[in-house]
Design a protein around this nucleic acid. Sequence first.
DNA 1: ACGCTGCCGTAACGTACGGTACGGTACGCA
DNA 2: TGCGTACCGTACCGTACGTTACGGCAGCGT
Lengths: 217, 217
Amino acid sequence: MQSTVEVSETALTERQKDVLDAALTLLVEAGDTLTMTSVARRASCSKESLYKWFGDRDGLLTATVQWQASKVRGVPVDPEAFGLTSLTTGLERFASDWLRVLSGTISVALNRVAVGHAGSDKHDLGAIVLENGPFAMARRLKPLLRLGRDTGLLHFQDTDEAFRTFFGLVVRDVQIRLLLGDRFELTEAAIDRDARRATQQFLALYGADTKAAGDGH
Amino acid sequence: MQSTVEVSETALTERQKDVLDAALTLLVEAGDTLTMTSVARRASCSKESLYKWFGDRDGLLTATVQWQASKVRGVPVDPEAFGLTSLTTGLERFASDWLRVLSGTISVALNRVAVGHAGSDKHDLGAIVLENGPFAMARRLKPLLRLGRDTGLLHFQDTDEAFRTFFGLVVRDVQIRLLLGDRFELTEAAIDRDARRATQQFLALYGADTKAAGDGH
DNA sequence: ACGCTGCCGTAACGTACGGTACGGTACGCA
DNA sequence: TGCGTACCGTACCGTACGTTACGGCAGCGT
């Protein structure tokens, strides 16, 4: 009970976490058409409790998104004994983790509701997903990129530009196609292959031993 | 009721086109929250006519998406007197056109509703946008890529893989950030710069004069 | 034992909106 | 002049769902 999971500064009880997990599975199943009644039924709780805990439907959705985001933390890339090998494996691991999360049903469902609510929204789900999705990825990857540059393994001027290129090489059209409902089979093998390919392409563009064609000063 | 409303290959009257344009602007303003009443009011037509012409709300949305798609056709890249210069300018022109469309308010709005309705939908807006978005782009670009390969300017085995890499280099995180509501200023200058950068990076990866690092042997 | 608290289950309320019906008007045509 | 067609404007209906209210129960402190 003392293990309070601080989301922004809300401490969630175990019961509430169960409710949010139920909301997550419903979000995956039914998308944005989930109703307060369906959540209450699935979680075996009363609607009164839902409104008491989360305020309104928007608050429930927001809490659900944040709850999921709080679970994805971690995956640190810590630099020790750094070299081209560890840079490469770091990038590959990052890319494959990312593709795995991105293509997961939960991520697809959450991005769908966030896109649907973007902008016109009290709590602005879009901003929350943006913050815990692309922006969090950037914050996590950039230290590795800077380390690569500082050790002379990478050449670029703008860290953000380098990150965004890596983003493009990794994600390509996968996310938009999944969001638009394209049936997509992303096997474990395909993920690993894509992660290696993206990493090699990135190194070809920004690696020290090649002429950097990417950062057109 | 004999007037079967043909949705694909529909001949639209001018009045109906006006109505769909009104629906488009409402979609941009209000997103998926647009109501039949609001469309009728904005277009100065009766709801009865809306239902007569488009069947139901889903039919109206579908017709609106298709109407917009029918306007974006064109932009042919015709190959004559082909060389590295025309390949480069072709890729750049393609990339900049694409970024311009992608970052437009109409495209963002349509992709939002399509993502929101993806899968769970009678007419499957997601599939329609997918077909007229990424897939149409692929169909348009691939001839240019094949021409580049046939003339020895490009090296790759899988045309689809090459296209998807170009997709990633061009779009990067722009589309998802826009869809999630990130305020984004994509000036004309920035679009041109990005188009050139993406093209140069693509040529660095797949150009004949460089070791192709992209297409896993 | 008594009251308080927290919660479940469900009934009830208000409303927004998709869909339909209907009266009124303009226009073409015999 | 009368009839049919197409359409606008609006009133209307049914329903789904967000939100609230209430009755009942279980646990806990005193």
